[in-house]
Design a protein around this nucleic acid. Structure first.
Lengths: 338, 338
DNA sequence: TTTACTTCTCAAAGCGCTTTGGGTCGCTAA
DNA sequence: TTAGCGACCCAAAGCGCTTTGAGAAGTAAA
């Protein structure tokens, strides 16, 4: 059923029916009522394509997942998208998602979205310090908000976890436990959050007057596997660390294995702290101390920010920092080495 | 830049330019060349809205994630969507995703998609035996393909893992190890795959002439938590099981904890087998024996199936069953109880 | 020279909405 | 009585494409 037939059926013009349905004030209450009822009865709903074409708004937003090869098990997007999707659904906006591997192809996916006029705005996650996607969007002056800051954060809307504060907190915790050789098993530092985490780590170390041994800072991107590999290497050092700060629970899990394999015990001999608070973290042995971040709510919040960005809010009002929450379990503790 | 301006610029009609760009045979090679070049130069790309409106095709498909509360950490959709999204991106189709909790609201999300003419087809995952979404789509005769079978599988396109075969295999494996009291910690059985897994389990038991004790079949839906709770209960039975077959790695992880808590050791005293082969499964203690299913490729395949369904393929040609792959690690073994 | 095709191009009619820019009608105020 | 003003309603012009139905030009056959 389309507008034409509906209006014919009602003996009214398309104009009037359209305006009645869209809440314009220049139609009488009686007419509006009649129209609304009829519309409901015959199950009329406007063709969104036609509506959008006429209005010149897309009523759609997009998110481009940057997928790696085989980083299965990363629950991030599941949760994040759930939050995002729900908000846009409420707002009657379409959410387009595409998956592209980081790199040239990724950028072309962005171009397709903006130059192909498919969406009114974009969400970008997994931000990098030097992020070509952000530069691109900035220079096209296209509405977007990021989850995570970047090198250009001042110029765009974002929600981010306060990674620096989080890592200051956990590093201080380890220092308080008496650890002085604390290693950082970080994510690749082109990811901006990883950089900030290192800053937090170094800052806490410096503030406590501790040496900041570059040998103790390593990075990798393959979760458990790299966590294991890197921890192994660290523990083999002449002066091995007594605590391992990991950029993710997955890495922490790999690190745990490495610790056990060289005959020491996690929590007493060497402390481990993760990040993410994945459900399995409660069930590792020992249960993993970690930092919690509410991904789903974050997704929802980013979505809301984009909505208000699109409707004209200024960037300054759209820059939020959330605090991660420390979840104390049993994988860390007092330093027993001399 | 729009068609009108481009064609004016070229001194041609919109018709010709349009047809040149869309590969119609009735335009001379020279003209086509001229048009294509000009289009590239000025960066022309057709407005998808207008195109779709004119063609009467939406060039979009949708997937509705059924999100529960707080089932964070479920990497399923991350992987699945990555596969799906990539295929549709290649095919130049938009992928719409919405998230809705199971129930009435979920169904209305489906209605919005089909009656609101937003997509040409849908993908439905996490199918249930009696699945109102499937019934709805069936009765509207709307193109869709599911990941997972349902009570109505005969009537729709699907890709599914052969859950029954998978569970026959692992159950037989445990039987071969000498286990006779094997428990099944299942997902809620309204999820069709859970039902099929039980069938496989029961079938293997019967074929081996073993008793099929209903006391040993339990279900839950909260991953680690329920795995732990249910295993605890099972181990407290008068005649406790010596093997726990779990519907997911998450549950298996919870179950492992329960086993250890009551002082027995996983793999020798009680065998545990999971399902999913999440990355952490390699790093549990002991490493978890499990069934692997390739989610990302599955997503991609489902997407391709939908594409061919939309372009007219018959349902019979679109019903595939993939075999899960057994990953043997160390959480199961010979039964040592008398 | 016609006739009959090809080959290439185009004007115009949609697709299903929204919006602009008037109208018409009945009332009040002058 | 008439101008002026709300309150309602409508015809028509887009939005930016695709597609239909035909026309013009050139070529080959008769």
């Amino acid at each position: 059923m389309d507008l034409k037939r509906l209006s014919k059926h009602l003996g009214l013009s398309q104009t009037t029916v359209s305006r009645a349905l869209n809440g314009y004030p220049d139609v009488s209450a009686a007419t509006r009522e009649r129209v609304t009822n009829a519309a409901r009865e015959v199950g009329y709903s406007p063709n969104p394509l036609a509506r959008r074409l006429a209005k010149g708004r897309l009523e759609a937003v997009g998110v481009i997942m940057s997928v790696g090869v085989g980083n299965f098990g990363d629950p991030f997007y599941s949760e994040f998208l759930a939050g995002v999707a729900e908000v846009f659904h409420q707002a009657d906006m379409d959410l387009l998602v595409v998956a592209a591997p980081t790199g040239e192809e990724e950028l072309s996916a962005y171009r397709r979205m903006v130059e192909g006029r498919r969406v009114d705005g974009l969400i970008v996650a997994r931000t990098r310090t030097k992020d070509p996607r952000i530069n691109y969007l900035l220079e096209r002056n296209f509405p977007f908000v990021t989850f995570g800051r970047s090198g250009e954060s001042a110029q765009h809307a974002f929600l981010d976890m306060d990674n620096e504060a989080g890592f200051i907190q956990v590093t201080e915790r380890l220092i308080d436990f008496g650890h002085s050789r604390i290693a950082l098993i970080n994510a690749p530092e082109d990811l901006h959050f990883a950089l900030l985490r290192r800053h937090g780590y170094e800052r806490a170390l410096r503030d406590a007057g501790l040496e900041c041994d570059p040998e103790l800072i390593v990075e990798g991107d393959r979760g458990e596997v790299d966590g294991h590999r890197l921890a192994e290497r660290l523990l083999g050092l002449d002066r091995p660390p007594t605590a391992l700060l990991c950029a993710s629970d997955a890495m922490a899990l790999g690190a745990m294995r490495a610790v056990k394999e060289c005959g020491r015990t996690v929590g007493t001999d060497v402390s481990i702290i993760g990040y993410d608070d994945l459900p399995f973290a409660k069930y590792t042995e020992p249960p993993l101390t970690t930092l919690h971040q509410p991904i789903r709510p974050a997704g929802a919040h980013v979505a809301e920010m984009l909505l208000s960005r699109i409707s004209g809010s200024t960037i300054e009002d759209l820059q939020d920092l959330w605090q991660p929450r420390l979840i104390v379990r049993e994988s860390d503790g007092i330093c027993h080495s001399k």
